[in-house]
Design a protein around this nucleic acid. Structure first.
Length: 273
DNA sequence: ACTAACCTGTAA
DNA sequence: TTACAGGTTAGT
């Protein structure tokens, strides 16, 4: 579910509550959601450590602890990280509860795809999932030239390349479709074949769409909530995602749907050349 | 480059 | 009953 803007919003809303708090205990309701390190259980590793900072890499939330460990959380499709200022009865799909000095952090995930992993901070660089990630699209260092270099060697269609986290970190099905619409590019264009003017447009579109998503506190199309349980509002501003058959906001013609790499893709055949 | 797998819930 | 859902990985 959450893509970069949603994960960033989770990070920001969580930071307001948990920075500086110690973890007293972890209650586990569905053990596969938690991954330990070299045979040690996460629930045995983190108690006694204090939450120092919260970071993000692509769609991962990084919880930096002062005892030399970092928690890496990925929500996949339906994962949620909730903060409650007081003890709160776990819900049907709550898999772990982190009891803090004040309040608690709950990890809830209906579809059970999400995971939280404990890793020694000094060895974060060894985690395959993080190693694979491409550049952060909102950082200064992500230039038009970098985008071009990432796309040029790819033999897949533009949509597939942008969904690939090793090309760029953080885009998912919603924001790829939205960025392609804003850039006026057809999702089936070969990724390697964009000219300079098109790269400039795509680069700007990716950043515009991601910043707008963050500004709206994410897209709550269905399941997404921030750490306070609040919905985002970007769903009201979507141009194409979830709008197949509806009129294009730019030209009025009906939006088309396509199946690309197993993912539904919506675009405007008129505006996206 | 596609498909299945991992899961549950909801809508058609 | 079936199709589909914001993700990722492994195996064809």
């Amino acid at each position: 579910m959450p893509e970069l803007p949603e994960v960033e919003t989770i990070r920001l809303t969580l930071a307001g509550h948990v920075i500086g708090l110690g973890i007293k205990r972890v209650r586990v309701y569905w053990p596969p959601a938690l991954c330990g390190w070299e045979g040690r259980d996460l629930a045995d590793i983190v108690p006694g450590q204090r939450i120092e900072t919260l970071g993000r890499r692509g769609k991962y939330v990084l919880v930096n602890l002062d005892g030399g460990w970092t928690l890496i959380a990925h929500m996949r499709m339906t994962g949620r990280l909730y903060y409650f200022p007081e003890a709160h009865a776990p819900e049907k799909h709550t898999h772990a509860v982190f009891e803090l000095d004040w309040g608690e952090l709950q990890f809830t995930d209906t579809r059970k795809f999400g995971r939280i992993q404990a890793v020694p901070t000094a060895r974060l660089g060894e985690v395959p999932a993080l190693r694979r990630l491409g550049p952060e699209p909102l950082e200064q260092s992500f230039t038009v030239q970098v985008l071009g270099e990432r796309l040029r060697p790819k033999k897949v269609k533009l949509k597939a390349a942008l969904l690939d986290q090793s090309v760029l970190a953080g885009l998912g099905n919603i924001y790829v479709d939205e960025a392609l619409f804003v850039a006026g590019l057809h999702p089936e264009r070969p990724a390697a074949a964009l000219n300079d003017a098109e790269l400039v447009k795509l680069h700007a579109a990716i950043q515009t769409v991601l910043w707008a998503g963050i500004e709206s506190r994410g897209t709550s199309f269905r399941d997404y909530r921030d750490a306070n349980g609040e919905m985002g509002s970007f769903q009201a501003k979507l141009n194409v995602y979830g709008r197949a058959g509806e009129p294009c906001r730019q030209c009025g013609r009906p939006l088309a749907r396509l199946q690309l790499g197993g993912r539904t893709t919506v675009f405007c055949p008129e505006c996206q050349g």
